Amino acid sequence: MAAVVPQDECESLVGRPIVSTMALDGSEPIAGARHAARSFMTALQAVHGIPVSDRAMSMVELVVSELVTNAYKYAPGPCLVDLEVRDGAVEISVWDTDAQLPAASPADAGRIGQHGLEIAMAVCRSFEVRREPVGKRVKVTIGLADDPGGHPAGRLA
């Protein structure tokens, strides 16, 4: 039987942010983060009725995977992933325990791997990295709708 939410409780949810927070510290955190990101994006459509393009669905999953991979590769300890919908976009925030800020590697056609940060920067509407009192936070934004101009990051060229 489906749960019935009283009208006054439904009204109290209007205007509230749609947020998901994950603490990751396990044997398969990257796969778990990808799965949680896809579930969050699916719920945006199914539960909240917010349109999400196929591109946005894929890009959120990809960027969460890349950022969590970097956190586990370079930072000791757990990481936190926040997903929040605001202004027609999903904001992805990944915190880890390493205070060293990441930097994209110089272009090198022969380099294998180490492209995660470049990928995230290329497909996101915005990209920000900042030190926290402990560790650092990487914050990116991905538009939920496709860009009419076809730009993969959802921003006008």
Rank of each mutant, 00 (worst) to 15 (best):
R16W: 04
E61T: 08
F127A: 08
P148Y: 07
L144H: 08
I92E: 02
V5T: 13
S65I: 00
M59Y: 07
D98M: 11
A46Y: 00
G26P: 03
M1W: 02
L117S: 06
H115I: 12
A3I: 06
A109M: 10
E132T: 08
G135Y: 01
S58E: 11
R125I: 00
A23H: 12
P78E: 15
D96F: 04
A107F: 14
V64S: 03
M41N: 01
N70T: 06
D54G: 13
L13I: 03
L24G: 02
R34E: 11
I18D: 01
A37E: 02
E118A: 15
I142E: 06
H35G: 00
G113P: 13
V140Y: 07
K136N: 06
V138Y: 03
V129E: 13
Y72F: 15
S105W: 07
E61V: 01
E9R: 08
T141Q: 14
V81Q: 01
G143Q: 11
V14Q: 08
S105P: 00
S53T: 08
E132H: 09
M22V: 07
R137L: 15
P51T: 06
G110Y: 09
I50P: 12
R111Q: 15
P133A: 11
A31P: 00
L67D: 03
M1V: 10
I112C: 00
P78G: 15
L44C: 15
L83A: 05
A120W: 03
A2L: 10
A46P: 00
L156T: 14
L144R: 08
Q114G: 01
H48N: 12
D146M: 07
T141M: 14
I92Y: 03
V134H: 11
S20T: 02
A103K: 11
L44A: 07
M22D: 12
V85R: 12
A31R: 14
E84H: 01
G110M: 10
V140R: 04
S53E: 08
L13C: 07
V4L: 07
Q114L: 13
A99W: 01
V19W: 05
A36E: 09
S65N: 11
G154W: 04
E84N: 06
I92P: 02
R38H: 06
V129P: 00
E61H: 04
L156Q: 12
V4R: 03
E61C: 08
D82V: 11
S53Y: 08
V90T: 15
G154Y: 04
V134Q: 14
S39R: 13
R55E: 09
G15E: 09
I18Q: 06
P78T: 13
A107Y: 14
A157M: 03
E84A: 14
G149Y: 05
T141W: 05
D108A: 10
H151F: 05
T42Y: 05
M59Q: 13
